[in-house]
Design a protein around this nucleic acid. Structure first.
Lengths: 226, 226
DNA sequence: GTCATAGTCATCGTATACGATTTCGTACTC
DNA sequence: GAGTACGAAATCGTATACGATGACTATGAC
C-alpha cells in the first residue's frame, strides 16, 4: 500500500495519469491494437496501465469527444465504428478540411518545402515499383504534412489531425492498397506542387487538393464494391 | 448522509450526473453566464450542481476536447479565450464547414424548406426596421439551420454545431451588431435561396455560402478595427 | 523599497469504496 | 423445444478521502 502511494507520487512528476491513459489508449486505437468494436473495459485498462479507473474514465470520455470511442451509459466503451458509411463520411469530411488546409498553407509554402515534398513523392514512386504499400501510405501522409504544416489556422490543422487519427483507426482494419489509384495519386501530387509553385489562387488549389482526396475515396469504394 | 445517497439514487434514473454537469456547464458557457476567462473551479461547480467533483471533472475534460474550456494541470480550468485571432480563426473554419454543409444539403432542400427559410429571412428584414439585433441573430441561426439540416454527413453537421457553440461563447462578449452588413446579409440569404432553387452546382453553392460567412467576418473585423 | 524565500492556502489528481444498472446464464413453465 | 422470469456476475457511476502541486502572502535581508 505504502509502496503504491510512493510510486504514484513519483510518477506523477512527469505527466498526469489521466494524460498518460489518454495517450496510451489513443495510440492503441490508432495503431490498431484496439481495433474497431473492441470493448474498452475501464477496470481492465486501468489495471494494464497500473492506475485506477478514474483517470481512465476521464481519458475515455475525452476520446469519445474526439469521436474515437463510443460510450454507452452503464454498458461501456467500445472503439468507434467500422461502418463503411462512417468511413465514407470521414473521408468526405477530411477531403474538405484538407482542401482548405492546403489552400490556406499554399501562399506560405516556399521552394524548400516544395523540394522536400517532391523528394517524398519520388520515394512514393519507388514504392510502387518495389511494391511497398505500407511505406507508401506513410509517405503519403508525409507528403500532405508538408502541404499543411504552414496552415495558419490552428483549428483547421487540428481537424486535419483528428481526421487522420480517425481514419487511421478505421484503416487499420479496412485499408487495402489500390495500385492503379496509387499511380494516379503520385501524378496528382506533382500537379498539386506545380499548382502551388505557379502561385495559383486559393480556390484552385483547394479544389485540386479536395479532388485528390475524393478520388482516393472513390477508388477505395470501387474496390470494396467489387 | 443517508438522505444524500437516496437523492443520488433517485436522480440517477434520468441521466448521469456527469452528463448533467456537461450539459449545464456547456449551456452556461454558450449563453454567456460563464464568460471567456471565467475560472471554473471544480469544487464550486460541483457544489452548485449538487454533485461531487468527479463527474464535474469528467464534464470539464470533455468540454476541453471540444475547445470550449482551457485546462491546465494543477492550475484549473477557464472558459476558453476571447483572443480576437481566435475569433477570426473560428469564423474562418466555420465558413468553410458551413459552406460544405450547405452544398451537401442543397440537393435535398425542397420547396417547403425554401419557403420556411424565406419566411425566416422576411422576419429578419423586419428586425432591421424595428432594430432588434438579438432576435436578428437568433433568426440568422435559424435560417442557416434550415440550409444545413438535410446535410447527410453527420461529421460535418457536428462540426457546424461545435463551431456555433464556440462562436456563441465568444460572441456573448464580443458581438456587436453591424447594421450595414445586416442588410447585405439578408439580401445574400435571398440570393442563396435562389441559387438553391435553380439547382446550381455544389461548387457554386458552397462558394456563395462561404463568401456569405466570410463577408460577415470581414464586417466584424472592420468594425472592431475602427 | 525591492527582491528572495519560506510557509500557507486553494485547488487539482487519484485511489478506494460502494451503490446502481445492465447483461448473461440458468431454470422453470407452457 | 421455445419463451420467460429470476438471479448472479460484470461493469459502470459517483462520493469521499487524502496526497500533490502550484499560487499567493508574509517575512526577512539587502
Amino acid at each position: 500500500m505504502a509502496d503504491t502511494v510512493t510510486a504514484a507520487a513519483t510518477s506523477t512528476n512527469a505527466a498526469s495519469k489521466s494524460e498518460r491513459a489518454y495517450a496510451s489508449v489513443k495510440t492503441r486505437i490508432v495503431d490498431g491494437t484496439y481495433s474497431p468494436g473492441y470493448r474498452l473495459v475501464l477496470a481492465k485498462i486501468a489495471e494494464d496501465l497500473g492506475v485506477s479507473v478514474v483517470p481512465v474514465r476521464e481519458a475515455i470520455r475525452r476520446l469519445e469527444a474526439e469521436g474515437l470511442v463510443k460510450f454507452e451509459r452503464n454498458v461501456g466503451a467500445t472503439v468507434a465504428g467500422i461502418d463503411p458509411t462512417e468511413y465514407l463520411y470521414t473521408m468526405q469530411t477530411l477531403s474538405i478540411i484538407e482542401g482548405a488546409a492546403t489552400a490556406l498553407s499554399a501562399p506560405l509554402i516556399g521552394p524548400a518545402d516544395v523540394a522536400r515534398a517532391r523528394s517524398v513523392n519520388a520515394e512514393m514512386r519507388d514504392c510502387l515499383t518495389h511494391f511497398d504499400p505500407v511505406r507508401f501510405t506513410q509517405l503519403n501522409q508525409d507528403f500532405h504534412s508538408v502541404l499543411f504544416e504552414h496552415c495558419p489556422n490552428p483549428h483547421i490543422l487540428d481537424l486535419v489531425h483528428r481526421g487522420w487519427n480517425r481514419l487511421a483507426s478505421l484503416r487499420s482494419s479496412t485499408f487495402r492498397f489500390v495500385p492503379g489509384r496509387a499511380h494516379e495519386s503520385v501524378d496528382e501530387h506533382e500537379e498539386l506542387l506545380q499548382l502551388i509553385e505557379s502561385g495559383a489562387g486559393a480556390d484552385e488549389i483547394e479544389r485540386a487538393a479536395r479532388l485528390h482526396r475524393s478520388a482516393t475515396l472513390d477508388a477505395y469504394l470501387a474496390q470494396s464494391n467489387s
